[in-house]
């Protein structure tokens, strides 16, 4: 068993920012395509189940709608996570150094405070 300590807050902040960026990209660039691809998946399911085309049948239409919704959610998830991964990479390259520096500064401050109190 290996036990190590960590500070998740800073790195999570980076991946969170990346996730938001991914979401923005999704909403601005990919939403329409995601709906279309999800709808196409729904059509494939309708076709495979041998149901009537969505233009003629309510159940088929609902399946296609769900397909579109899931397509959008799935793609949003993918984009958010890709953003989060990029954020994690940025943390690995830059953020960790910043976090360590911040941690060291905090420690210095903590040690300095009792000394002042003693004075």
């Amino acid at each position: 068993m290996s036990v190590k300590s960590g500070s998740p807050a800073v790195r999570d902040a980076f991946s969170f920012a990346g996730g938001v960026a991914g979401l923005v990209v999704f909403l601005t660039l990919i939403l329409n395509a995601a709906l279309a691809y999800g709808g196409a998946a729904g059509v494939a399911i309708v076709h495979g189940l041998g149901l009537a085309p969505a233009s003629e049948d309510t159940l088929s239409k609902i399946i296609v709608w769900i397909g579109m919704l899931l397509g959008a959610l799935a793609t949003a998830a993918l984009m958010i996570i890709l953003g989060a991964v990029v954020g994690a990479l940025v943390y690995g390259l830059v953020g960790r150094r910043y976090a360590k520096a911040a941690e060291a500064a905090a420690r210095t401050e903590q040690t300095a405070q009792p000394e002042e109190e003693q004075r």
Binding site: L27, L31, N32, L35, A36, G39, A40, G42, V43, V46, P53, A54, S55, S60, K61, V64, W65, M68, L69, A72, L73
Partner: peptide
């Protein structure tokens, strides 16, 4: 966002019809 996309039911309907062909 998805809700907004779905709000125009006519456009969505025609999109579905196109996909259904």
């Amino acid at each position: 966002a998805v809700g907004v996309a779905f709000s125009d039911m006519d456009a969505l309907g025609s999109k579905i019809e196109r996909l259904s062909e």
